[in-house]
C-alpha cells in the first residue's frame, strides 16, 4: 500500500492533502458557531467607527498594538477587564495583533480622550516624552472613506446577518442617512478637537481620517 502511494503522484498528493487538511478541520470547525456569538448588548460598529477601523487597518496599527487583554492580573491591572470572545463578534477581520511594541488598545476608550488622541497622533512625544511611535499627521489631512465603510456595513448586514437597524441597536439606514449620521458623529468629535483644518473640513461636510480613527478608539472599551 505504502509503496503504491509513493509511485502514483496523484494519489500521493491526495494522501498528503488528507493528512494536512485533517488538523484544520478538527481545530476550527467544532466551535465555529459558538465562537461567532456576540456578548449580550454588543452593538455593531457605526459607519464612522468602521471608517476609523479602516484607517487602523490601512496604517497597520496591529504591527505594534494588540487588542487582547490576557487573563493575568498584571494585564487586567494595566488595561482593564479580560477580553471575551463575544466582544469580537463583529470584528472582521480580528485585530488582536501579535506584538506589543506599544500598549494594548482593547480598552483604550476607557482611559484616553479625544483630546489625548489628537495630541498623541499629531506628536506622540507631546504626551509620552520618550515614545518611539511615529506621528501620523497625514491622518489630519487625508479624508476618511465613509462610502466604503457604508458598503462594508451593508455587506455584513446582508451576508452575515450583523444586526444593523435592530431595536436599540446601531442604525444604518440608506446611504444618504448613513452619511449624514456619520457626519453628525464626526461633528461631536471635532467639537472636542482644536486642530483648525480638521474643524474646517468637518464644517464642510468632510471627515478627516483622524476623526474616524478617534471615533473607533473611543468605541474600544
Amino acid at each position: 500500500m505504502f509503496h503504491w502511494l509513493e509511485k502514483n503522484p496523484f494519489f500521493f498528493a491526495v494522501g498528503v492533502f488528507i493528512v494536512i487538511a485533517f488538523a484544520g478541520l478538527i481545530t476550527v470547525v467544532p466551535d465555529f458557531a459558538q465562537s461567532a456569538r456576540p456578548v449580550a448588548g454588543l452593538k455593531p460598529y457605526t459607519v464612522l467607527e468602521l471608517a476609523g477601523k479602516e484607517v487602523y487597518k490601512k496604517d497597520h496599527c496591529i504591527a505594534c498594538h494588540s487588542q487582547l487583554v490576557r487573563p493575568f492580573k498584571s494585564e487586567t491591572d494595566r488595561y482593564g477587564q479580560v477580553s471575551l470572545s463575544g466582544e469580537y463578534a463583529y470584528d472582521r477581520p480580528f485585530l488582536w495583533g501579535s506584538k506589543r511594541t506599544g500598549p494594548d488598545l482593547h480598552r483604550i476608550g476607557n482611559y484616553r480622550t479625544t483630546d489625548w488622541h489628537e495630541n498623541h497622533m499629531w506628536n506622540p512625544k507631546s504626551v509620552v516624552p520618550t515614545s518611539i511611535m511615529p506621528a501620523y499627521r497625514h491622518h489630519f489631512t487625508n479624508i476618511a472613506d465613509i462610502d466604503t465603510a457604508y458598503a462594508e456595513a451593508v455587506t455584513v448586514k446582508a451576508l452575515f446577518a450583523t444586526p444593523y437597524d435592530a431595536p436599540n441597536g446601531t442604525k444604518l439606514g440608506s446611504h444618504e442617512e448613513a452619511k449624514a449620521a456619520a457626519l453628525e458623529e464626526a461633528k461631536v468629535i471635532a467639537g472636542n478637537m482644536k486642530n483648525k483644518d480638521v474643524k474646517d473640513a468637518v464644517a464642510n461636510g468632510q471627515v478627516p481620517e483622524i476623526v474616524a480613527l478617534i471615533a473607533y478608539m473611543n468605541r474600544l472599551k
Binding site: 461567532a36 463575544g86 472582521r92
Partner: peptide, 30 residues
C-alpha cells in the same frame, strides 16, 4: 468584496473577511 454586494458603493479594492473575531483568529493563525 464590498463593492459588489453593496451595489457599487465605495472602493472596489475593499473586502471584508468571512470570519469574525475568535474564528477569524483561529483561521488566521492556522
Amino acid at each position: 468584496p464590498t463593492y459588489f454586494v453593496s451595489g457599487g458603493i465605495g472602493n472596489i479594492m475593499h473586502s471584508v473577511s468571512m470570519y469574525s473575531g475568535t474564528n477569524d483568529a483561529m483561521v488566521q493563525w492556522w
